[in-house]
Design a protein around this nucleic acid. Structure first.
Lengths: 257, 257
DNA sequence: TCTATTGTTACTTTAGGGGTAACAAATGTA
DNA sequence: TACATTTGTTACCCCTAAAGTAACAATAGA
């Protein structure tokens, strides 16, 4: 059993670029002040056949001084100098790398965290995922009872587990769904039923905000369904807007069972 | 052939602790700003099967941000932050290692670069090595013609190739050796012939200074021969002392052929 | 439903570092 | 001078990490 060199020290020296045996040998020499290779081996456990090459490598790195003779004596260079040298080289390297990276014309992209999903199956799967991950609160807005009806069972479960708010444009359309609904004011209802963007009519099948963190907007663009997933920080803002609409816009409060 | 990421940049990032493929992927992302895994693969050449795990590893290290979706998009964290983080961790490690090394009670050893040789053959071999390595100047002092005579041929060669100064305590003793000698003053001669250290008589068979860099002192301690090899910086000082002795002490100048 | 793309897994190869045994050279002793 | 001991070196083996490839599973789009 070799008397241990502090394993943490060896680990730190490895992080600084030395191999395990180099770290042991150097630490051993620091401890012994001046020593033969055999003494370094006996203290540190570095194999005797390896210790000569390792000390030679350390010498070539400038971390160890050698006194030729038989036996050869080795002496550690002052740790302050060794660590200083390692730090300097690392710094030089870091600055150079930073310059090279900066030359790659780095710019933080400004695009918000938005993804488009264009397949029907993908949209439904993602909606279901979002519903599955709700913890505290879910806000739903819909103008399409057929689409919303697909998630009736999911929503029934959520009623029990979190604060569920479902807002629709027209209560009459959703009376076949056994859930509690709120209705937006007529003005807003008319607004969402008459959305045109670039000559294409949009209808908002579903807009969901989960826990104020993530939202998905499912809409028809012309005759193509598309979903957009949106994350922080816009979502919280949208959430507040919708709450405000609830309070200020005024709308018929009705429920169906 | 993949469009190369600057190999020097990759090498620098490796020195900073990233693997080769991690460095390539990170640099690729910095260059692309925001990209899919396939785009990173196409730019950098990192194998497509590897690139997902590598980007995930970089993400866990905090060097890359991930936007979930299909496909997943990746974005590089600002290099200034990444390199700053790496430097901070390295610094912490370096300081800790230095503290640990200092706890080993390191002291620069004060012993001068001196080695002892105790075998007759070793002494002769080392003297011969030193004579073989002379370039410009050799200073020899001796009180033992038998010992000095062993190196007559070596010294004859040196006469032609460098500045050779041989000083002896008594010219008469060395007349059988075909070399030019100088004789020390009587006072010094008496001194070296009557050296006692710890009750043991020392006789200086030979003292050699080669090129002002290395010296070997061969002496009898009692009835045991011993050699001491000495290196910088004391040697230059001794050399100057001897030169001064030559000039100031005054000694009979004689030569034998 | 089929095709293309994305993402993952399993396997192989290479290089570097660590360990051991044995040998050559040097030193010390009788 | 010969022998024993110590010093210093070489050859070989093993393991791990990283890199590369082929194939498969999952997902998205038409």
């Amino acid at each position: 059993m070799y008397p241990a060199i502090n394993p943490e020290l060896v680990s730190n020296l490895e992080k600084l670029g030395l191999t395990e045996n180099e770290g042991k040998a150097y630490a051993g020499l620091v401890s012994l002040k001046e020593a033969t290779a055999r003494e370094v081996h006996e203290l540190t456990g570095v194999p005797r056949a390896k210790v000569y090459d390792i000390l030679k490598t350390l010498s070539m790195k400038g971390f160890v001084e050698v006194r030729q003779g038989s036996p050869v004596y080795f002496r550690a260079v002052d740790p302050k100098h060794v660590i200083g040298r390692i730090k300097d080289e690392f710094f030089t390297c870091a600055i150079e790398a930073l310059d090279q990276l900066n030359e790659l014309s780095y710019e933080i992209p400004r695009s918000s965290p938005v993804w488009c999903i264009q397949s029907e199956w993908g949209i439904r799967k993602r909606v279901r995922e979002i519903l599955d991950n709700v913890r505290d609160e879910l806000i739903v807005f819909s103008t399409n009872p057929e689409f919303l009806g697909e998630f009736e069972s999911d929503l029934k479960k959520l009623e029990k587990n979190c604060r569920l708010i479902i807002i629709v444009d027209d209560l009459k359309k959703f009376k076949g769904i056994p859930l509690d609904f709120k209705e937006v004011g007529k003005e807003f209802g008319d607004f969402v039923r008459n959305l045109f963007i670039d000559g294409v009519q949009y209808t908002e099948d579903c807009f969901i905000i989960a826990d104020g963190k993530e939202s998905i907007a499912v809409h028809m663009a012309g005759d193509k369904r598309e979903a957009v997933v949106i994350r922080l920080p816009m979502v919280c803002h949208l959430q507040k807007l919708i709450y405000n609409w609830l309070v200020e816009g005024g709308f018929t409060i009705g429920t169906h069972q």
